[in-house]
Design a protein around this nucleic acid. Structure first.
Lengths: 213, 213
DNA sequence: AACTTGTCCTGTCATGCCGTCAGCTTACCG
DNA sequence: CGGTAAGCTGACGGCATGACAGGACAAGTT
């Protein structure tokens, strides 16, 4: 699917080359999760990978370019989030379990890709189309199926609210909560209580009803 | 209230000095809204302010330090958001108007401080306590009074949900929507429709009821 | 084993930003 | 008018960036 891996100057990378390239990406990932984005320097990444800055520039145009690479990889990975909603039931107690599992899975994914998602979020907010697209791909893997679920459950009641808006709000909320869970802690909401609360919101949003006890 | 403005090396700044300082801050603000945060350089800010880099370092330890200054100024300003909730009624049609005005005011504030809030959000997500504190101050100016509102309106019905969690979720949602309104557009939610939808969510969250038509 | 070929890495260099300092200019005051 | 403190900048060592050419290396060929 992806074409051959190429260096900046157009050569095709061989086995050894791909290894160093990957090592650089791994080190950059590590770097991103330990230093502020603004302070991540090419020379540090190169040093950590046991190579020279020049090598880095052979494979990536700059730090941002390499970050995009990592982000795209992660976006591919986010496809798995679809299964948290697709074909799930929203009726009664089962429905609330669906909601709980969705919240759980989403938060886990975000936590796992914490550092890179921070940068993607920043880039998207700054208006960079490439980062925006990647962010949408991640969010859509949940928002897409979720919109369908809202539509299906809403037909029975009223049509006053836009399913896309509801689903979008819920996903935004989840993303925000994942990125800033500390904020909730400072509001006196314990990490333990955060998940049930979010699950409740999601259930309410999708079904329009209060959950069964 | 704030002590005398001082230079990095401890001198007190006079009238002229404060002017340059302010000009530097203004230029930095401008810079932040036109360039990616990662690419904002001291030398560019200085050039734009018609001064030299050395002058910048006389008043701020580094770019981050100056950004914090701007952010704190904005946080002070956010106190006005309290009035969007404090002493407002949540009953009936008036309640929905309250909700609409809150959404409107919050989005306006965020849009106005767009660029600086992006950086604050990033800093908070990266675990920087100074940025986190500032972000909480802004969010709390709404979340605080809102929690009270939720408490007051919930006493009449059930106590199953934590008011702080509800209010926190709503504020998080608003912040997320403000920062990434483009995402909603790409979900097919027009900017015009976004506000009413958010207002609906807020009203629902606070009162637990559907709004009167 | 010597040779060939194409991939891979790095030494080096020019450029530009960072952050600091000494020292010059300006403003204020007695 | 001289003293004092504020205000600004030129200049400098240090480091990151980004480009290039040439050497190291692996793998196959003779």
């Amino acid at each position: 699917m992806t074409g051959q891996v190429r260096t900046v100057d157009g050569r095709v990378a061989g086995r050894r080359g791909q290894e160093t390239r990957q090592k650089l990406l791994d080190c950059l990932r590590e770097m991103l999760s330990t230093s502020p984005y603004r302070d991540v320097k090419v020379i540090d990444v190169a040093r950590m990978a046991g190579t020279s800055p020049a090598t880095f520039y052979q494979y990536f145009p700059d730090v941002e370019g390499a970050v995009l690479e990592i982000a795209e990889e992660m976006a591919e990975d986010s496809g798995g989030l679809k299964e948290l909603v697709d074909g799930k039931s929203w009726a009664g107690k089962t429905g609330f379990t669906t909601s709980e599992e969705l919240v759980d899975g989403f938060l886990a994914f975000w936590r796992k890709n914490d550092a890179i998602l921070r940068v993607v979020t920043l880039g998207a907010a700054e208006g960079d189309k490439r980062f925006f697209k990647i962010r949408m791909k991640v969010l859509n893997s949940v928002a897409g199926p979720l919109t369908e679920a809202v539509k299906a459950n809403q037909a029975k009641t009223d049509k006053s609210v836009d399913p896309a808006a509801v689903s979008g709000s819920l996903v935004s909320l989840l993303a925000s909560a994942a990125e800033h869970s500390k904020a909730f802690t400072s509001w006196g909401v314990k990490v333990k209580d955060l998940k049930p609360n979010l699950a409740l919101q999601v259930y309410l949003g999708v079904t329009g009803k209060k959950p069964p006890k």
